[in-house]
């Protein structure tokens, strides 16, 4: 009898504060598995953003710096330039990365910083109570778009993986989802590729993960995952948008 699935070592053995069915737990686990795979736990520096994932240090067994809202790529830039032999990753939500932190992510990517960015897109501001995010779907009702997102006033949801793939500084950009076993397996593979880029010093890597926020979507976890597959994936297609080193 062989244990074929267990908690990765880079995750602490503690219960998270995430709501039932929240994708943050899955994304944490996939990132920790990638760290285990490359044996980099002891040399990794995580940069936490402000959002439901702010307690990164409570769950990952790695050193962590907490960044102001949206600034994680700048904080990671400073850390990586000062300690180029360490593995530095940021973990950011869609409000954090695609609204307040747009300048920081674009320019860190454009400079080709040797960091890995994990972007959790749940189409809402989870932590602050489900307000509209730059990734909120057209028509989606949130606490600040009670009539549904109106593309004429609020614009269209931003596709970050495609946008960043346009930049020469980017080595790897991909979008994955964690709503089904099949998608989780693909996410697992590409999460490893994202870290491999940094381990092999191949440049900036970005992985967008389509995620659910059952609490603020007002859905059961099962319904939320179904919704992700039916509504989000058609607008935010999964795939690898840039892979300069063909890893």
């Amino acid at each position: 009898m062989k244990q074929v699935f267990q908690k990765p070592e880079s995750l602490k053995d503690v219960q998270t504060h995430f709501c039932p069915g929240c994708s943050h737990g899955s994304v944490h686990r996939l990132a920790a598995e990638a760290m285990d795979e490359f044996g980099i736990r002891a040399e990794t520096i995580g940069v936490a953003s402000v959002g439901c994932s702010v307690f990164l240090y409570s769950y990952f067994d790695v050193d962590v710096i907490e960044a102001p809202h949206g600034r994680a790529p700048a904080v990671a830039t400073g850390a990586k330039r000062a300690r180029p032999d360490r593995i530095v990753f940021t973990y950011q939500g869609d409000g954090d990365l695609a609204a307040i932190g747009t300048a920081e992510i674009i320019h860190a990517a454009n400079r080709g910083e040797d960091i890995t960015v994990i972007f959790v897109n749940n189409t809402t501001y989870g932590m602050t109570g489900g307000q509209m995010a730059p990734t909120t779907m057209v028509g989606q009702k949130t606490s600040t778009s009670p009539y549904g997102r109106d593309q004429n006033k609020d614009g269209y949801p931003i596709r970050m993986a495609e946008l960043l793939a346009q930049l020469e500084g980017v080595g790897f950009s991909a979008r994955v989802a964690v709503n089904s076993p099949k998608n989780v397996m693909q996410a697992k593979k590409l999460m490893k590729t994202a870290f491999q880029y940094q381990v092999e010093k191949k440049g900036f890597s970005f992985i967008e993960v389509l995620a659910v926020c059952p609490t603020n979507w007002g859905m059961s976890p099962l319904a939320a995952n179904e919704h992700l597959g039916n509504e989000m994936i058609p607008y935010f297609p999964l795939g690898v948008y840039r892979n300069t080193s063909n890893l």
């Binding site: 600034r71 700048a74 920081e104």
Partner: peptide
């Protein structure tokens, strides 16, 4: 940096590593 906001946060990140 792309802005003073980014610059001070780079300072934060570098300083955090000692």
């Amino acid at each position: 940096a792309e802005s003073e906001v980014a610059a001070i946060n780079m300072l934060l990140g570098a300083s955090a590593t000692g």
